[in-house]
């Protein structure tokens, strides 16, 4: 059989790319909400900063899972 085109490498990086979509949007929303809250109510900046990092860290976790699993489920090439 003639091979016309070949893709080499590992599909787990595509999985990581897919896993990064949702957290990317989520982290964006978290920071957008913080900026909006601070613009509307500048005194609340220090009050909401803790929640900013909490929300950021919680939504970021999924992308990091994707990163780790991309390495874990990599077939040895």
């Amino acid at each position: 059989m003639n091979v016309l085109a070949e893709v080499s490498g590992n599909i787990s990086s595509i999985g990581y790319g897919l896993a990064a979509i949702g957290p990317g949007i989520g982290v964006g929303i978290v920071f957008a909400a913080y900026i909006q809250a601070t613009a509307r109510q500048p005194e609340s900046a220090s009050l909401t900063r803790t929640y900013l990092f909490l929300g950021f860290a919680l939504s970021e976790a999924l992308a990091l899972f994707g990163l780790v699993l991309a390495f874990v489920f990599r077939s040895s090439t």
């Binding site: 860290a57 970021e60 976790a61 990091l64 899972f65 990163l67 780790v68």
Partner: peptide
């Protein structure tokens, strides 16, 4: 655990 690890690893 994974958050801290993955950030430093990456």
């Amino acid at each position: 655990a994974v958050r801290l690890f993955a950030n430093m690893f990456a």
